[in-house]
């Protein structure tokens, strides 16, 4: 437990500093009220809004841990949203819509995984195919329109709340905890890391590396499906052109802010979802502070750069060196006097 806390300490610190920074611009940032039996407040909005990226980040962490990357998750969100919405519009009911959407996500994962593990195509290229072509598939399903539905049961997944807490927030916490337990309470996490560090060596040691990589991309596809369901339920409509647009990059950024190496190997799911919350805190904070919209992306870039610089291992060792030199100089001066 203590080790796990130490692993996510930089991310927690960043969140606290960001919260202080936003509070400076918007004093009631941390205030949470209870209205109509549901919690409301900027922090609640952040844990709700951050759900799609947090869930994508869970799947992305696993893919990145194997040394891969999944650029298609944003597009898979659009596809699964379109599948779910068209199932609802056709009157097939919520369970069928959910099953079909998850099936579409898993299929996308099998496709990506097969390209990477069986055909040996580089992950960034393999998933780029679905990233660009997939939006066309989503548009074919919605016929280019925003498919609007009015099923309140399905909308509950995006905008409902349980015991005052927004459902999307519960979903990402649940996803994160389940996947983390599955990885850490079994040997699975270790196997994923070993494939990421050296695929050939793990295969020679008896790990089914090929199968594991396909399964990891399927997990990412399933996470994308869940994120797509939430995004679609949230606006009660499937927008094939815009659903999940550029979210794959936010998910990768969340993994990176979580301190995971894009080269594969050791990973922490908790740190990645905290990374997603950091990104969402920046986004919501900018909106609350009320800057003109031209500044949004610049502010985001500066903050992200600052966070990554603080986490940079090079900078950390340089800093340690400087501190040592200062200490030495002081000691020398003390001797002279």
């Amino acid at each position: 437990m203590k080790r796990a806390l130490r692993r996510v300490a930089p991310q927690l610190m960043t969140l606290i500093v960001l919260a202080a920074l936003v509070s400076w611009f918007f004093p009631s940032f941390l205030q949470i009220d209870l209205s109509d039996g549901r919690l409301v407040g900027p922090v609640i909005d952040i844990v709700k809004r951050g759900a799609p990226v947090a869930i994508l980040a869970v799947g992305m962490t696993l893919v990145v841990a194997t040394g891969g990357i999944d650029l298609s998750v944003g597009t898979v969100m659009a596809i699964t949203g379109a599948v779910a919405a068209s199932a609802l519009v056709s009157g097939w009911g919520v369970p069928v819509a959910l099953l079909l959407a998850c099936g579409a996500g898993l299929t996308a994962g099998v496709w990506n995984g097969a390209l990477v593990a069986v055909l040996g195509i580089q992950p960034i290229v393999a998933t780029l195919i679905l990233m660009t072509a997939g939006r066309g598939i989503a548009q074919l399903i919605t016929e280019g329109r925003i498919l609007t539905f009015s099923d309140t049961g399905f909308a509950f997944l995006g905008s409902g709340s349980l015991m005052g807490i927004p459902v999307p927030a519960l979903l990402w916490v649940l996803t994160g905890v389940l996947v983390a337990l599955l990885m850490r309470r079994t040997a699975l996490g270790l196997l994923v890391e070993s494939v990421g560090i050296n695929q050939r060596a793990s295969a020679l040691a008896g790990v089914n590396a090929r199968g594991l990589i396909i399964v990891v991309y399927m997990a990412s596809g399933l996470c994308a499906a869940l994120a797509g369901i939430i995004a679609t339920a949230d606006i009660r409509g499937a927008d094939a052109n815009n659903a999940g647009l550029w979210l794959e990059l936010d998910a990768i950024l969340a993994v990176v802010i979580g301190g995971n190496s894009l080269l594969g190997g050791r990973f922490s799911i908790a740190a990645s979802v905290l990374g997603a919350m950091i990104i969402q805190t920046i986004d919501t904070g900018i909106l609350l502070a009320g800057f003109p919209s031209e500044y949004n992306l610049v502010i985001k870039a500066v903050l992200v750069l600052a966070i990554l610089m603080i986490q940079s291992p090079h900078l950390a060792s340089e800093w340690a060196l400087i501190r040592m030199q200062i200490a030495r100089r002081r000691a020398a001066r003390g001797q002279e006097g």
């Binding site: 606006i235 409509g237 927008d239 815009n242 919209s293 949004n296």
Partner: peptide, 8 residues
């Protein structure tokens, strides 16, 4: 603020 012409 900008909302990029999109629903979400």
């Amino acid at each position: 603020q900008t909302a990029d012409f999109t629903r979400s």
